[in-house]
Design a protein around this nucleic acid. Structure first.
Lengths: 157, 157
DNA sequence: TACAAAAGTCAAAGTTAGTCAAAGTCAGCA
DNA sequence: TGCTGACTTTGACTAACTTTGACTTTTGTA
């Protein structure tokens, strides 16, 4: 399934990450590029397309002598801020438009895919809920909180 | 039977699908076009006319270096009937356990993925809805109908 | 400070696959 | 015959993803 060099490098890095007990690996860009016979900047490409924060990775690096690239798999603690932000915005009651914006942001930050976002927007709509405004906004808030909690604790793939 | 190039390609692909233990094959569009001496876009034609979701196939692809077209056989007999069956089962009101069973069946038939099923089960739960029983079962029914409709009309994102 | 040794950036080139509409084929029928 | 409509074939154009390399920035050390 993995045909491109980028895919192979991605697999290699994730393999190493899984084997490291600390959930963190440190590489030398040039050494890796050498190992996979590619230009050093391809390592940057792989990292920027496959090890993004949205996908649950945090990357640090340092240039110069003794430089490195460190990749860490982030767990809930590191995302807690974003997670809490979302929950705070939702509160105990949320109108449809606000919820729709939040869903769009979650989609844009790759926390959900298009189908999930579409489904979610339909589920929290006035038409689906068909309840008095006050009650409707409260049910919608509980649904949104459940969405965010699920997204943050059960990452796809 | 017929022996148009498209028919030959269709036969070739289905043959390969049958032989693959995983029920899934991966091809390179250009290689196939080369093999059958046709333009690459004819592969798209064959796929779009013979490997539709209605006929029980799910197709994914990726462009660029290492690109591919992946065809998977999905086990679903008669689409429309299944869709209508689901809607009938839901009706205007549905209790939590019944809805959960339906979600599990949708998951098993690959209409949804694990995370979507998990999310959906949480969304339709007593805890999330927190409404009087009769109202709750009605809201749940509308949510389930929306789920099924979305799944059947918005295949794979 | 100067230099060397890292890593970063960015855009061009390369590699696939997708879309769409025009043209071609063929069978059935008035 | 020759028309019609469904299906197939073709290719120009588009979109998405990857690879490459020239140039830049940062950092440690002599």
């Amino acid at each position: 399934m993995s045909n491109s060099v980028s895919d192979v490098i991605e697999y290699y890095l994730k393999q190493n990450l899984n084997e490291s007990r600390s959930g963190e690996i440190e590489i030398k860009r040039n050494e890796l590029a050498d190992l996979f016979q590619c230009v050093p900047s391809q390592i940057n490409y792989v990292i920027s397309t496959r090890f993004t924060i949205e996908k649950g990775y945090f990357v640090e690096s340092k240039r110069g002598g003794g430089g490195y690239i460190r990749i860490r798999r982030v767990c809930l603690d590191d995302e807690a801020e974003h997670f809490v932000d979302c929950l705070n915005q939702i509160g105990q009651s949320i109108p449809q438009v606000t919820a729709e914006h939040l869903i769009t942001r979650l989609l844009e930050s790759r926390m959900m895919d298009r189908r999930e976002a579409l489904l979610m927007k339909r589920l929290i709509s006035r038409e689906t809920l068909q309840l008095p405004v006050h009650l409707r906004d409260q049910v919608r808030a509980r649904m949104m909180r459940m969405l965010v909690t699920t997204l943050f604790t059960n990452r796809g793939e």
